[in-house]
Design a protein around this nucleic acid. Structure first.
Length: 690
DNA sequence: CACCAGACTTGGCCGCACTTTA
DNA sequence: TAAAGTGCGGCCAAGTCTGGTG
């Protein structure tokens, strides 16, 4: 966004027709602006008016007035409130427009209004566009105008220097460029454990041979006779050299990256410059799935312009393919959000280039997601009563559905779509649970009807849990397990499509994953209420993290303990010890000073007491901070908070909490997160209820 | 209803830049 | 000033869910 120059007011969220209304006026304004820079402020005044007018009138022609289902009463109120606030603000403050894309080429009708603010802006603070205060498309279209420069391709392969050799059966062998490139992929991975795995090696070797010349193919027949170590060393040396680069060299690289970002990292969608999420195409390499993946080691091929489908609006300046190449296709589909796509060769799935989470299109969807979860909150009691009733159903199908839903609700399990066998790692979710994944214990310790879950979920993360369930559920499970083999489905009459269809009937927009969102968010809210007390800021933040942690545990967001965990924990502990020593020393001094004062009663000794008292206080605070840090870290050893924070917790809960307790939002959300949740930060007040 | 392509969200890991510490 | 520690963002895989088709 550092482009510095905003676009004309007419650009703000104007559709083709919308611009018409103000065409005349805007044109004048532009001229004025160009020629009379010193009248900036006046111009801005004009801009404000035309902008808000514009909003009022033209916008609604393009975006249906009807509120989408996600805006329930309370958020409408927020909306209104903020709209009003914003208007006021605009009246009082400078306003600067958002879109600023030097190459923008909007509709002819609006053409004359663009590129007018080059001079304005720069140092002015850019007002962020508040898309959440605007109407949304209700006709299923995602945008009216879309322009971008296409993806950035992976750098071409650079052949190895001649001195770096590959050896086959002990003898050096020069490889053809394609074969050499694939060999380097393997060589780079030599230190990883998976290059020793049979499947990995088999897949790799098979795909590697496809890249070889027939001569190479006939020669190289056994991977075990291949020696890549020189190549491996070479790349290690390279990365070492990169680290040793001078400041200037590093700076240069940084600048080049920044240039690329500025050129390719943004697009214009509906007159706003928006950040693209992933504008670089994935480079070729060896596929490494997660867990026990049958396709690990396969060659992920290089993506060429001929593989890419470009999506942009007809009236935009289309991205140019690299010289001498062509796109696979250029299409203009405004029912989707992606800018480019291609088919990946491992799974045959489609990959996309899409916008950053801070963009309007992602933000709206995110907001909508939480609104759906809030609607679930309103009817969850009914739904729970319903599935409990269904445990008694005469129909097996309904019973299974009811028990599965109970797990999804209570344990926040994922839906569990079926997957093609042999194509991916063997992982399951609720509906795809197999007999072997659950164990029933009528009695365990002092609890009755305990179910033990043990399975690999998404990303092959293990889910292990023992929970007591209601007797009815237990009896049902026994029934489902009857006469089945370990590899049979637990819910043999159920799949995600049946389940979701049922959920859809219970509530509009309800699917299995809404329960995860709902339960995560409601847990956070509840935990925050329970844990936060009027304490120091670090203590409150610890409470926040604990609430967050409760959610992460519910959602089973685990991580491998950081490699340096033990050590850094020790370091922290020794710091604490040291601080403790400091503290007792300081206390002694304080005591001595007090005694001194008692004896002498003079001013000087009185001052000394005060100084010492302050010192003790300061050290106490430091110590407390360290202890809190240690607790937090210890508790967080195997828990990953990021995913829930980013995907499951209604950000307005956190924002409200910050406001309520006077915590700066920066303590909870870093910069990126603040960008993603700008809508929530702007609209949630301290009394927000999920 | 099964099957599949397509679109979009969710997910953990890891390298790297940046900061802190010795 | 170098080594160690840390947080972030990129990477890219793996889910969910929808809608079309036969």
């Amino acid at each position: 966004m550092s482009g510095g120059h905003g676009h004309g007011d007419s650009q703000v969220n104007s559709g083709p027709k919308g611009s018409d209304t103000h065409k005349h006026k805007d044109k004048h304004k532009d001229k004025d602006h160009r020629h009379k820079d010193h009248k900036k402020d006046k111009e801005r005044e004009k801009f404000k008016h035309s902008n808000s007018e514009h909003k009022e009138h033209s916008e609604k022609k393009h975006r249906d007035k009807e509120k989408l289902k996600h805006s329930d009463g309370s958020s409408d109120k927020h909306r209104e409130k903020h709209k009003e606030k914003d208007r006021e603000k605009r009246r009082e403050e400078k306003v600067c427009c958002v879109a600023s894309y030097s190459d923008i080429k909007p509709k002819k009708k609006t053409k004359d209004k663009k590129v007018t603010e080059g001079k304005k802006g720069k140092k002015e603070e850019e007002e962020k566009w508040k898309w959440w205060e605007e109407e949304r498309y209700t006709d299923g279209s995602k945008w009216r105008f879309l322009e971008h420069k296409g993806p950035v391709f992976a750098p071409p392969y650079e052949p190895l220097p001649d001195k770096v050799k590959f050896y086959y059966d002990g003898k050096p062998m020069k490889l053809s460029a394609p074969a050499e490139e694939v060999a380097t992929f393997f060589a780079k991975m030599l230190d990883h454990e998976y290059t020793t795995k049979e499947i990995f090696r088999k897949n790799f070797f098979k795909d590697w041979r496809k890249e070889m010349t027939s001569e190479e193919k006939s020669k190289i027949t056994d991977l075990n006779k291949c020696n890549f170590s020189e190549i491996n060393e070479y790349f290690k040396a390279q990365s070492e050299a990169r680290k040793q680069m001078s400041k200037e060299e590093k700076q240069k690289i940084k600048e080049e990256n920044e240039r690329l970002l500025q050129e390719y990292g943004f697009c214009v969608m509906d007159n706003h410059k928006e950040r693209i999420g992933n504008f670089r195409i994935e480079p070729p390499g060896l596929f490494r799935g997660r867990g026990d993946h049958p396709k690990m080691g396969m060659l992920k091929r290089r993506i060429r312009p001929e593989d890419i489908i470009i999506n942009c609006s007809k009236d935009s300046k289309h991205p140019k393919p690299p010289p001498g190449t062509k796109w696979k296709e250029v299409r203009h589909d405004n029912k989707v959000t992606w800018l480019a796509s291609w088919t990946e060769n491992i799974q045959g799935s489609i990959k996309y280039i899409m916008l950053n989470p801070s963009s309007r299109i992602k933000g709206e969807k995110d907001w909508q997601k939480y609104e759906t979860a809030r609607r679930l909150k309103k009817c969850v009691d009914r739904i729970r009563a319903q599935y409990r009733e269904d445990w008694k159903s005469k129909e097996m199908k309904i019973r299974q559905r009811a028990v599965a839903l109970y797990f999804i609700d209570k344990l926040a399990l994922r839906a569990g779509n079926e997957k093609e066998e042999g194509e991916t790692a063997d992982t399951v979710g609720c509906c795809s649970l197999r007999v072997e994944h659950v164990k029933l214990y009528p009695k365990m310790d002092d609890q009755e009807y305990v179910v033990e879950f043990d399975f690999l979920g998404k990303d092959s993360i293990r889910y292990y849990n023992k929970i007591p369930v209601e007797k009815r559920v237990f009896k049902n499970l026994q029934l489902f397990l009857e006469n089945k083999q370990p590899e049979d489905d637990l819910f043999d009459r159920l799949n995600t499509s049946i389940l979701n269809k049922h959920l859809q009937e219970l509530m509009d927009g309800l699917t299995a994953k809404v329960f995860r969102t709902y339960n995560a968010s409601i847990t956070l809210q509840q935990q925050l209420k329970e844990l936060t007390s009027d304490d120091s800021i670090p203590a409150k933040i610890l409470s926040y993290n604990r609430a967050n942690r409760a959610v992460a545990i519910l959602c089973n967001h685990q991580r491998a303990p950081p490699k340096t965990f033990e050590k850094s924990m020790q370091n922290l502990q020794s710091k604490i010890d040291e601080k403790q020593n400091q503290l007792s020393a300081a206390r002694k001094q304080l005591k001595a000073a007090k005694a001194d004062h008692k004896a002498s009663h003079d001013d000087k000794s009185k001052k000394a007491v005060e100084v010492k008292r302050k010192a003790v206080q300061r050290i106490e605070e430091q110590l407390m901070k360290l202890q809190v840090q240690a607790t937090d870290r210890e508790e967080n050893k195997q828990i990953a908070l990021g995913t829930s924070k980013l995907n499951y917790l209604d950000p307005r809960i956190s924002v409200a909490w910050c406001k309520k307790w006077g915590i700066p939002i920066e303590k909870i959300y870093n910069k990126t997160q603040r960008e993603k949740f700008a809508w929530a930060i702007d609209m949630a007040e301290k009394d927000y209820e999920f």
